[in-house]
Amino acid sequence: MKIGIKFCGGCNPLFDRIAASRRIKDELREKAEFVSYDDPEADIILVFMGCSAACAEISGFSMEKAKIINSDSDADSFIIEVKGTAGL
């Protein structure tokens, strides 16, 4: 599985987007390859939005692939979902 990563600009984040993305990468290191958000072969694009304004520019990719990570619990849920899908 290829997972693309996109961030909002983090002007005033309500959670630590960077730490959350690192945690996802660490936990799913063996299940997925992490690529740029504009990689056409990305299966999922995780979009880290620091607050409810959710202003990251996402017009350039398919919303079917996008998964919004808006909090640490969103990040945790994604990890559990991928591990479950991967048969762990």
């Binding site: 961030f7 600009g9 983090g10 002007c11």
Partner: peptide, 8 residues
């Protein structure tokens, strides 16, 4: 940096 390029 990808963490900031959306604004910068």
């Amino acid at each position: 940096l990808p963490e900031y390029e959306d604004l910068l």
